[in-house]
Design a protein around this nucleic acid. Sequence first.
DNA 1: CAGAAATTCTAGCAGCGCTAGCCAATCTGT
DNA 2: ACAGATTGGCTAGCGCTGCTAGAATTTCTG
Lengths: 193, 193
Amino acid sequence: MSIQTRRERERAERERLIVTAARELAETEGWDAVTTRRLAAEIEYSQPVLYSHFKGKDAIMAAVAVQGCADLAVELRAARTAAKDPREALAAVAEAYTSFGRRRPALYDAMFTLAVDLPFATPEAPEPLWEAFRELAAVVEPIAAEGEDTGLLAETYWAGLHGLVTLMRSGRLPEPAHEQRLALLIGHFTAAL
Amino acid sequence: MSIQTRRERERAERERLIVTAARELAETEGWDAVTTRRLAAEIEYSQPVLYSHFKGKDAIMAAVAVQGCADLAVELRAARTAAKDPREALAAVAEAYTSFGRRRPALYDAMFTLAVDLPFATPEAPEPLWEAFRELAAVVEPIAAEGEDTGLLAETYWAGLHGLVTLMRSGRLPEPAHEQRLALLIGHFTAAL
DNA sequence: CAGAAATTCTAGCAGCGCTAGCCAATCTGT
DNA sequence: ACAGATTGGCTAGCGCTGCTAGAATTTCTG
């Protein structure tokens, strides 16, 4: 029994190692640099070992994405709880969200841009995804108008932030005006207050 | 002189052929299916011919993206001019935009998601890109509040639409509630009226 | 300590974007 | 009209990718 559990522990440890290596490599050199060979070298195992843990490269990216959501949820929560009123909280979360996207682009892409087969808006979605989304929902809830669905409003607000981040990061929106656009978005979502 | 021009005409014709083939292949089978070999076979020339027209695959995708922007501009303009008041125009353009993104995902990705090195928010940006953006600016202009920059507002509105399209298409937002989210976005951008 | 089972490795497949260098068709000057 | 120069397309191949079959090694069991 003990041997079995030790093995499982070591396996889990190595899996953590893979995900961490993938995340660090992606964050420092971008996802293009994360090849299965490179990753295998990084963890000092041979390539096929990766496939005994994950179905493929996509699954590794999905695991990184889940970690990223946990990180994002923490940052969003910090921003939300530090604010002293709902309006300020909305702005703080927006700032935290877009800052996350710009500061950790590779992580952000794995989470929200690249095609990874993670269940998202379903009960089967990993908990960290829900944690991050619930932060958005929590910050949006007080500014919801009469009869507005909080979940849908959170999704819409999220879409606005996501659009700003991705269009800016891909060079389609000029960086300098980011704060102004953010202010516009926040302004229009709090107009009713 | 005539020979020269005939040659240039034929070259231009072939270039058009490449871009069209790339777009059609992408639209029917996705960008993953658009390989240089496949594309070469499609136009009935050998692979290296592509490189005498375009610097690489990215440049071909960029050309497709420019075509796509022209298409989008036409659809947005049609939606805008058919509407009978500014509020309705805003909604119609939003509907047209998101419909385009869902109806022609591969084209949309080349235009707004994938990393193609096209100059975007600069005077050097290809005309069709500006045409599409000007449609957004035109429809947003009447709903801009006192002192709001129309360009920035258009960018922000665009980001909202783009976020909705991409998050939905990648399965991160549930499809069925799309219209409701769209209504929320439009509502918050026209709250001042 | 031998056989069984699990695990890791080596080697290789098919496909990718891209390019060097050969070959053939076309144009030019006499 | 023909030899030489030039242009343009082709074949073949490089280094890389994600992924996997099957050998080899290690670990556990009777």
